[in-house]
Amino acid sequence: MKKIIASTLILAVILAAIVVSAGCTAQSSEQSSAHMNTPNLPPADTGTITISDMANRTVDIKKDPRRIIGVGAGALRMIAYLQAADRVVGVDDREQKKYNTSGFGMPSGIDKPYNLANPDLSTKPYIGSKTGDPELIAAQAPDVVFFTFTTGKDAQTLQEKSDCPVVALTTGDLGKNKDVFYQSLRLMAKILGKEERAESITSYIDRTIKDLNNRTKDIPADKRPRVYVGGIAFNGAHGFLSTDPVYSPLQMVNGNNVAASVRGGGQMMIDKEKLLEWNPDVIFVDEASYSLVKEDLKDPVYQSLPAVKNGRVYGVMPYNWYANNYDTVLADAYFIGKTLYPEQFTDVDPEQKADEIYTMLDGKAVYSDMKMLFGGFVPFSMLEK
């Protein structure tokens, strides 16, 4: 009897072990299955984005940066265009200098359209010259620094010394380097979460350039006056013989630039004899060089030019100040178009058009301020202050 009971107990223990073992095996299998069927969840949000800047550097930046700095020519302009001026926590010296109030002439400080539209920018803390001071930048604890007219090496050095993310950008222009400008603007917009605003800007500029071209592209060559643009400022004011063979506002209205035959592009000096040979019908003067050109035009030789004798000399507002002020380029183009081809611009008031452009890009109508500072769209003989 005892043997039977013992045998029964042994059998019960064996059966219990089998059951427990089976249960553990099932649980392990379920856990393994559950682990294998877990969906691929996205990685946890680290709060940063990684971009490749215009110097082909990889930079990690805090998402939705609220404290930003623009260093160098054109950086703050793009920030203002993207309606992010309220995030700026420091500016370089060119964004704080008081503008010239003694008379028409060279831009000298906070007299750029975006400064006039955003006067509070000049009150931001000083962060050094146009290349930035690492310690002064670090003191403002920016989430990101946008740096123009730089190299990858210099941008990296500023990043390491300030311990702040630095993004290298290129300002470009509205001519052959327009795509470069758009790339930089869109990259900045991506970082700031302003992509929609960037597309509004580029679309507006493209439509405006297209409108200027459509109004003037079919004008016969013999109906296009010979035009000279003098007093072109570059790193300072220059006299009447300073010109630009590829002056953008004139190109945009398909104007006949008498200097176009000169090889090269950008600001250059010509000989007086060459200007007399060209004998332009119409002359535009960069108002940044007002004082110098005013004196030059007293020369009897220049007084003999038909454009001068017929009162066909006009002022255009300076746009090449701390890189291209794209807004003024477009505004000047409408004034030049209206002056050269009035029938093609009957529906355009250049001053009103300028304010439309300034409002769209800078956020405020500032033509009256620009006119007060530089002279505006008037015959050059009327530029008195």
Rank of each mutant, 00 (worst) to 15 (best):
S21F: 10
G23T: 05
T25Q: 11
E30R: 04
A34I: 07
T38L: 14
T38W: 01
N40G: 00
N40R: 03
P43I: 02
A44T: 13
M54K: 05
A55F: 03
V59L: 06
I61Y: 01
P65Q: 00
G70L: 07
G72C: 07
G74R: 01
M78I: 12
A80G: 09
Q83D: 15
A84R: 03
V89Q: 11
G90Q: 08
G90E: 12
D92A: 01
R94A: 05
G103I: 04
S108M: 11
I110T: 15
Y114K: 02
N115D: 15
L116Y: 06
L116P: 13
N118E: 09
D120K: 08
K130E: 13
T131P: 00
G132N: 05
V144I: 09
V144G: 10
F146C: 06
T148Q: 04
A155E: 08
L158Y: 06
Q159R: 10
K161Y: 05
K161V: 04
A168L: 01
K178W: 03
F181K: 01
Q183V: 00
M188P: 12
E196R: 02
T202Q: 11
S203R: 12
S203W: 00
I205S: 09
T216E: 06
V227G: 10
G239M: 05
S242C: 06
Y247C: 03
S248L: 15
P249Y: 09
M252Q: 12
G255R: 02
N257C: 03
S261Q: 13
S261D: 14
G265F: 09
Q267A: 14
L275Q: 09
W278H: 00
N279G: 04
N279W: 02
I283W: 04
E295P: 09
D296M: 08
P300N: 00
K309V: 00
Y326F: 12
D327N: 09
A333N: 06
T339Q: 13
L340I: 06
D347H: 00
D349L: 02
Q352I: 08
A354N: 08
G363W: 05
K371H: 11
F377A: 08
F380C: 11
